[in-house]
Design a protein around this nucleic acid. Structure first.
Length: 487
RNA sequence: GUCCCGUUCGUCUAGCGGUCCAGGACAUCGCCCUCUCAAGGCGGAGAUCACGGGUUCAAAUCCCGUACGGGACGCCA
């Protein structure tokens, strides 16, 4: 059996983290099973679909490297044998119309002339009577004469699916097991809008069938759509694909993840300094796990180990703290050269002028705090003092420079370092220790004021390496200036 | 209101009838390492497995209820 799965977003906003998670699970399922991963754009909502949202989908998919084998591409071309992959284009090509007409001819669908207002008031009435707010089926038995009358009055009909009222529609969900709905709880849903466009539940079935989708992996908010879709497959004489319904991602307050919870667009995570591999790794663990609860995955490992059996039925709460930890892990695993490339936009964004710093020195400086970065946005703040004047932390100045011996130590060290033969880590440390011994001071009494003098802070990278990268002129100059701040 | 789905440490999860007075990870706390901060190492605390009934020699694991949460009931997807 050919494994073919799809991610079918609707372009009505940015690509949010939940969408990426769905795309990721489809992608992993395809890659693990040597199948095909398809991207299909479900833009049948003429009012809300936008080109900007289509672009946002490309941006997000590309950033997370969820490469698709078939579907629309950014340049307007399309990959794969089932084009077009945009539902609007498919609608324009008459693909859905053909099946609508077929169902109509077979009596498996009928025209409905109700207006939105009529439907809405019927809905309100049902809710008031505590009945299911569901379409009654009133247009099902319209006579030809009645239809002709509506048409004569200029009413455009929608087409409704004539839902079978007997029996059941169920499936063996790959994640949840047997799920069954009684047909009587289903209703005659609209499959073609007045505009002539298909609705989601219809277009989805036609496309999944035509594109030979073998497994539909989607969020569990679609569970109640599934029985209706199964009935449509049956009406068309088709075999439904396998279904797997993923649990949702919730925010810290336990409700479905949304704008209220801060960053929800994937690209927002890029802007906040997360590495896409870390976001992907974290997302994979929301609602999925290996039998041994593995946390970190090497490149290609998720693809190898993904098993839909490891999917969770219950919703997962998005935990920013864990994502941040994971991002730190990924940053630590990133070679400095690559890290420097990734950090560059953030450094520029922060307005730091790295001037004539050569690449090797820049990488050296960035590597000083390699294990400390949790997000790329932290890089500029931690390297800034190498490239611009020291900004003193008031508490640091108070704590370190106000010690009685501080002033003479700074003067002494400025002297030592201006005369040192070789301005290298080892020599700098040796000289500092030598000075401590000479003055009968503890090494900490030297190290701390020097650190604050050159960086403005009490904490930072390993001291002598930092001084080496800073260079003699800057170090001596800063030590001398710091003397003025000392008591 | 009706239908569907779910419920293991604060969070993500392991667990598929005995090896579980429940394992791992994040967060948290402590110790070690150490020129600071991190990182790393070690350790602690943290879950009456939502609740109540069954079934069984034995249940987090199977069955039935209840509660709570979520989803759907759109000419949105």
């Amino acid at each position: 059996m050919n494994i073919r799965v799809r991610f079918a977003p609707s372009p009505t906003g940015f690509l949010h983290i939940g969408g990426v998670r769905t795309a990721l699970f489809n992608y992993l399922f395809a890659r693990h099973n040597n199948g095909t991963f398809i991207l299909r754009i479900e833009d049948t909502d003429e009012e809300r679909s936008t080109a900007a949202s289509v672009k946002a989908i490309f941006d997000g998919m590309e950033w997370t490297k969820l490469n698709w084998d078939e579907g629309p591409m950014r340049d307007g071309s399309e990959l794969g044998p089932h084009k077009p992959y945009l539902q609007s284009a498919r609608a324009d090509a008459g693909i859905y119309k053909k099946y609508i007409d077929q169902l109509l001819a077979e009596g498996k669908a009928y025209k409905c002339y109700c207006t939105q207002e009529e439907l809405e008031s019927a809905r309100q009435e049902a809710i008031a009577k505590k009945l299911p707010p569901r379409y009654s089926g009133k247009c099902k038995h319209l006579t030809d004469a009645q239809r002709a009358e509506f048409e004569a009055r200029g009413r455009r009909p929608a087409v409704r699916f004539n839902m079978p009222k007997e029996g059941h529609a169920g499936w063996n969900d790959l994640i949840r097991g047997e799920v069954t709905f009684a047909s009587k709880d289903l209703y005659d849903l609209v499959i073609q809008k007045t505009s002539g466009y298909p609705t989601y539940n219809f277009a989805c079935v036609i496309d999944d069938h035509m594109m030979e989708i073998s497994h539909v992996i989607r969020g569990d908010d679609h569970i109640s759509n599934t029985p209706a879709q199964i009935q449509i497959y049956r009406a068309l004489g088709w075999t439904p694909p396998e279904f797997a319904h993923l649990s949702m991602i919730h925010g810290p307050d336990g409700t479905k993840l949304s704008k209220r919870h801060g960053a929800t667009s994937v690209i927002e995570y890029e802007k906040q300094g997360y590495l896409s591999a870390a976001v992907v790794n974290y997302l994979a663990l929301l609602g999925w796990s290996t039998p041994d609860s593995q946390q970190l995955f090497a490149p290609g490992e998720l693809e190898r180990k993904f098993d839909i059996k490891g999917c969770q039925k219950s919703p997962a709460i998005f935990d920013p703290a864990k994502l941040e930890w994971m991002n730190g892990e990924y940053i630590r695993m990133t070679p400095v050269a690559k890290l420097t490339d990734l950090a560059m936009p953030f450094i520029k964004e922060a307005g730091i002028n790295i001037g004539g710093a050569d690449r090797a020195r820049l990488e050296g400086i960035i590597s000083l705090e390699h294990e400390k970065y949790k997000r790329l946005t932290e890089v500029p703040g931690l390297i800034k003092f190498f490239f611009s004047d020291v900004e003193f932390d008031a508490a640091a100045v108070e704590k370190v420079f106000k010690k009685p011996e501080a002033k003479s130590i700074l003067e002494g060290m400025a002297e030592v370092y201006s005369n040192i033969a070789s301005f290298t880590e080892a020599e700098l440390e040796r000289a500092a220790r030598g000075y401590a011994e000479l003055k009968n001071l503890k090494t900490g009494q030297i190290f701390h004021p020097v650190r604050v003098a050159v960086s403005g802070r009490t904490h930072g990278p390993t001291l002598f390496k930092m001084l080496e990268y800073m260079g003699r002129d800057t170090v001596v100059k800063r030590l001398k200036e710091a003397v003025k701040l000392a008591a």
